[in-house]
């Protein structure tokens, strides 16, 4: 099947399941009960006294209707059907990405819950860090008789795992910096999570990259300050070819102008090529390679 045909087949399946609408209510095995609440608060370490007085923790809403050790699959369950279809198409792996729950009220011991589920959306294919896949979102509604007591939007990524083969990137293969006594303080700093900027002890001029003398006043009186790590993107590159040791492609590379006024080259992380723009606010983060090397990287500052 071509990529376009595959996408159409996935979307057709999604539409078929969406049209089916809500499943029939599925009832919780047990009524809301104190022993299960006790197990939950014990495991979570939650000590709120209201949970000993007939109220259940809101975050337990879904627990009451879990399928248990030997779940009986509802053949009409849209999530299950969609998952099975995507598995058949080679999207074998699954990863929960989002869970949005609302609680209308706290449940009380003795109440009988039921749940219905509907397929909310299927979006994709998207290339993600773990592989290409579809985001499948379902909406569940919990009721006591006809009263809605809780809802949940649950999103999973159903994906085709990237081949863990020769293409896998080993971060320890990054090119190692040449270091001498003029630059050692910088790399010592990165190992400690400090972004150190050389400062002249005489005229206080900041400088990066560092060197033995102060180009402004000529003194050899070197000190450093620890940068805020906050700045803006002065320019950037999306490196697509050739392969770079220790780096995943495409590789986002930024020239960052720190608030202190000096610039620095670093990898940009936590964003895709389409998210990057000049003047974007960024802040430093750390990529520990091994005991001897930690690299500064920059992420978007919100």
């Amino acid at each position: 099947m071509s990529d376009i045909d595959l996408r159409e087949a996935v979307m057709a399946k999604a539409l078929e399941l969406q049209v089916m609408g809500e499943t029939a209510p599925r009832y919780a095995r047990d009524q809301v009960n104190q022993p299960m609440i006790n197990n939950w608060v014990e495991a979570m370490g939650d000590s709120l006294s209201r949970y000993t007085q007939g109220e259940a923790p809101p975050a337990m809403a879904q627990v009451w209707t879990m399928g248990g050790l030997n779940p009986q699959r509802d053949p009409n369950d849209p999530l299950h059907s969609m998952m099975e279809f995507l598995t058949e198409q080679g999207f074998t792996a699954v990863l929960g990405t989002n869970c949005e729950q609302t609680y209308e009220r706290y449940l009380r011991v003795g109440e009988q819950l039921s749940v219905t589920t509907v397929l909310d959306s299927v979006v994709g294919p998207k290339m993600t860090g773990v592989g290409e896949g579809y985001f499948v979102t379902t909406k569940s509604v919990w009721r006591v008789e006809d009263e809605v007591v809780a809802t949940m939007l649950f999103r999973v990524l159903k994906y085709r795992p990237k081949q863990a083969d020769a293409n896998a990137v080993d971060p320890t293969k990054v090119l190692r910096p040449a270091i001498n006594r003029d630059t050692e303080f910088f790399w010592e700093g990165t190992r400690q999570g400090e972004l150190r900027l050389q400062q002249c002890g005489s005229c206080h001029e900041l400088r990066h990259p560092p060197g033995p003398a102060c180009p402004s006043c000529g003194e050899f009186d070197r000190t450093f300050v620890v940068s805020s790590g906050v700045g803006r993107l002065f320019s950037f590159v999306v490196h697509r070819y050739p392969a770079v040791p220790g780096k995943q492609l495409p590789l986002l590379l930024g020239l960052i102008e720190l608030d202190e006024g000096v610039r620095m080259v670093a990898e940009l992380v936590g964003m895709g090529p389409e998210d990057v723009e000049i003047d974007m606010p960024v802040q430093v983060a750390w990529q520990r390679i091994d005991d001897s090397l930690t690299l500064p990287v920059f992420e978007r500052r919100s």
């Binding site: 000590s47 709120l48 929960g96 990405t97 869970c99 609302t102 609680y103």
Partner: peptide
């Protein structure tokens, strides 16, 4: 939920939790 209610105590009801994993 526990982290938030540990801080806020029993003065508040939790009305929703939205998590990104």
């Amino acid at each position: 939920e526990r982290y938030v209610t540990d801080v806020l105590g029993e003065e508040y009801d939790v009305t929703g939790i939205s998590v990104r994993l």
